[in-house]
Amino acid sequence: MSVPSTYTLKSGYKIPSIAIGVFKTPVDEATAIVHKALQVGYRHIDSAQIYKNEKQSIDGIAKWIKENPENNKREDVFFTTKIFNDDQGYELAKAAIERSLENIKDISSYIDLVLIHSPRTDKDRRLGTWKALQEYAKAGKIHTIGVSNFGARHLDELYAWEGFEIPPSINQVELHPWLLRENLVKYSNEKGIVLEAYAPLVRGQKFDDPKLNELSKKYGKTPAQILIRWSLQKGFVTLPKTANLDRLASNLDVFNFELSQEDVDYLSDPESHYISSLLSKDDPTEFEG
């Protein structure tokens, strides 16, 4: 199947279908990783305040723009950050957004996407955070707003809120062949929410899977490339992470082959609910939607 290079979100903005994630990227390496990623062709950077490397990631974008300002434009890069639990609630969220805007002010007056990082606070704080996000979106300081790790019940709470004005464009959750979240995928499709798949490489924990290795040999691609291609063909915006500069280009080199639908289904395990992320391990059912 043809995989688009971008998706158009409910906000009207376009999001590249593959990103480089900087979760756990060391602070002193983030600038170099982001800069190199942009050099090899990535145009989507996924960061978060809790990662402690947001400013360094933005510095990588700035470095890329500076080296060729005629061709390397800020508007060609889609930058995401997230508001974590300690900064949720209306006033705290506004302060958090201002910190991110301060970090990015040298290259732009806006952030492309801001997500509520987790629903693990309480209703008032979640909705207060959304109120702040809506205000900044209406002011043009955030182009698109969304959520991360939300199940259907958290989204239903948002849709039912009397202050609800701007629908979430994105829900970023862990998705891969061993964590299909079929109910949440169906719900999101019905609501027009684009799903972003974090940990599409399952943090390397499934690289020895027999089916994965069988397909790797069949297509002449690395296990990582098979998993990224699987995610793209499922219609997800895909966020592979690597701290290895050499693997950046390899992970992006996934648009020149296609998995058959039979092989997409073959690799998918609907009986598995394997969670690799630390965030969801406490309650594996919480974010199943």
Rank of each mutant, 00 (worst) to 15 (best):
64 W>A: 07
74 R>Y: 00
82 K>F: 00
79 F>N: 09
66 K>R: 00
79 F>W: 10
57 S>M: 01
80 T>W: 07
82 K>I: 00
108 S>M: 02
87 D>H: 13
101 L>M: 08
89 G>R: 08
86 D>Q: 11
105 K>Y: 04
91 E>H: 14
91 E>Q: 10
93 A>I: 10
96 A>Q: 02
69 P>I: 11
91 E>A: 14
105 K>L: 01
108 S>C: 15
101 L>Y: 12
91 E>D: 15
87 D>Q: 13
77 V>W: 00
90 Y>L: 14
92 L>Q: 10
69 P>W: 14
57 S>G: 01
59 D>K: 02
64 W>P: 12
88 Q>E: 12
83 I>V: 15
101 L>S: 09
102 E>D: 07
106 D>V: 01
86 D>P: 09
63 K>S: 13
75 E>M: 03
59 D>A: 03
73 K>P: 12
108 S>F: 11
62 A>D: 04
106 D>P: 00
74 R>K: 15
99 R>P: 05
58 I>S: 06
63 K>P: 11
61 I>S: 05
109 S>N: 13
80 T>R: 08
74 R>Q: 12
96 A>P: 01
89 G>S: 10
95 A>F: 01
74 R>D: 02
104 I>R: 13
101 L>E: 14
99 R>K: 12
74 R>G: 00
74 R>P: 08
103 N>H: 15
67 E>R: 09
93 A>P: 08
102 E>L: 02
82 K>P: 00
65 I>K: 08
98 E>H: 05
102 E>F: 07
71 N>F: 05
101 L>P: 09
95 A>H: 03
60 G>A: 09
108 S>K: 06
93 A>K: 13
100 S>F: 10
105 K>H: 06
103 N>F: 01
69 P>F: 13
75 E>C: 05
96 A>V: 00
86 D>N: 14
105 K>C: 11
58 I>C: 10
93 A>V: 10
89 G>K: 09
90 Y>T: 09
108 S>R: 11
64 W>N: 01
69 P>N: 13
89 G>I: 07
99 R>Q: 14
83 I>S: 15
62 A>S: 09
67 E>I: 04
